[in-house]
Nucleic acid binder design. Structure first.
Lengths: 231, 231
DNA sequence: TACTTGACACGAACGCCGTTCGTTTGTAGA
DNA sequence: TCTACAAACGAACGGCGTTCGTGTCAAGTA
């Protein structure tokens, strides 16, 4: 017959839980997807892993590094095309859409991408290589390729940031439409002598969904690339 | 003959300091310019005004509102041109440069601009009107004007964010160049079979200062606008 | 003049953050 | 068995935005 444990005995500690960098990134990505970027704190991630925030620092040097790992994880999902010189424009456009699609799929990642000044991860290089390769395959002069790369990579990231911002508010589609209407009424009530163009174009500025607007923006930029390479 | 003040008496309180929204924005802008965006906390601003953070909330509803006021203050400094149809391209380019210049002059404001999804302040409207007006004066079709406005406004903001990020590090120009060289060596050591375009173009990607790159980017985008309006 | 009311200023505290520091635990090698 | 090192962990540091309750001030009214 066993006696009760005497109260002066130290209770047995739980066995230590093993962590890994991959487990941490997995947990952070799940939280990002479910709750957004602001919820991805070291405490929140540690909580999801049933440990304390200090334990994470054995595997990632800082929260900043954790965010870079998240970005790399997301960029690794973007498939890059094999350049076909006859279709470089469509392929370049498709690559941009895939990149933005991946960023948008994980709210907040675009913000991390913008915060990461010069990405130096495998997949950021893979994407850069693909983008550069497509423009070169299309015969764009190298000097213009460099500019096109600057513009497209920054614009795609910023566009994804914008899309994420639209979607991150705790507002229903109903409230979002109401705000749009309020803005429309506000613009319509601006003084016509000061804002004639806004008044004339107000209906066009909010037109189309994000995908159409991005499509048109890419046509503009890539069109500039294609036309300038004839000069 | 006066006796010493008895110690049980409540010491006389300092007279209340009057605050105003303008004083708060002034203080915040001064801190932003001197110490960067991360230093602009309610506590830091309140400290600069010799008060406590709770006092600020009588004048601004949140830190977010304070940031919007900062942005509006900065945008109010951008002069807008009167449209001249013969020179709309140069004028549009100059307007973009002025906008980015103002954002860059105050580190962190560009981040606020990107965080402010749909700016609804007087000067954001003034700038929008100017940008739209220039493109329309140049005969760009309205549908394309809307796209151009989308692209240019977002790209300018993102570019300013990028410039601010380059300058925000606590690194000397010497260290910055060293990092650039490290990155150059890293890229040069990438496997040539996987990254032929990066290797061929590495020298072009970091070439030129921010102003030249922005200049070229604007040429590309505005060139796209001008050429597409012929189709 | 005294009182009332509402706006403003302020201190304390809440709940959160990233990170460090010192301690404990577990594992591999000698 | 002992040693050394890496990993896990708890407590705490210094910071954040904001709220709540209290006190003060100024203007208006009786």
């Amino acid at each position: 017959m066993e006696l009760p444990e005497p109260p002066w005995r130290t209770p047995r500690r739980k066995p230590r839980q093993q962590l890994s960098r991959q487990a941490i990134v997995d947990a952070a990505l799940a939280i990002l997807d479910a709750e957004g970027l602001d919820a991805v704190s070291m405490r929140r991630v540690a909580q999801a892993l049933n440990t304390g925030p200090a334990s994470l620092y054995a595997h990632v040097s800082s929260k900043e590094e954790l965010c870079e790992l998240l970005l790399e994880r997301v960029l690794s999902q973007v498939r890059v095309p094999t350049p076909d010189p006859a279709r470089w424009r469509e392929q370049l456009k498709e690559l941009c859409k895939r990149q933005v699609g991946a960023l948008v799929e994980h709210p907040g990642i675009a913000r991390i991408a913008l915060d990461t000044l010069i990405p130096a991860t495998e997949h950021s290089f893979v994407l850069a290589e693909a983008m550069l390769g497509l423009m070169r395959a299309g015969g764009v002069p190298d000097r213009l390729v460099a500019i096109g790369f600057d513009v497209l990579s920054l614009y795609c990231t910023a566009f994804a940031v914008e899309v994420n911002a639209v979607r991150s508010g705790e507002v229903s589609p109903e409230q979002l439409r109401e705000r749009g209407e309020q803005m429309g009424r506000y613009v319509a009530a601006l003084p016509p002598n000061r804002f004639p163009a806004l008044l004339a174009m107000g209906h066009l500025l909010g037109e189309g969904d994000g995908e159409q607007r991005f499509d048109a923006a890419l046509d503009l930029i890539i069109g500039g690339l294609a036309n300038q390479d004839r000069t």
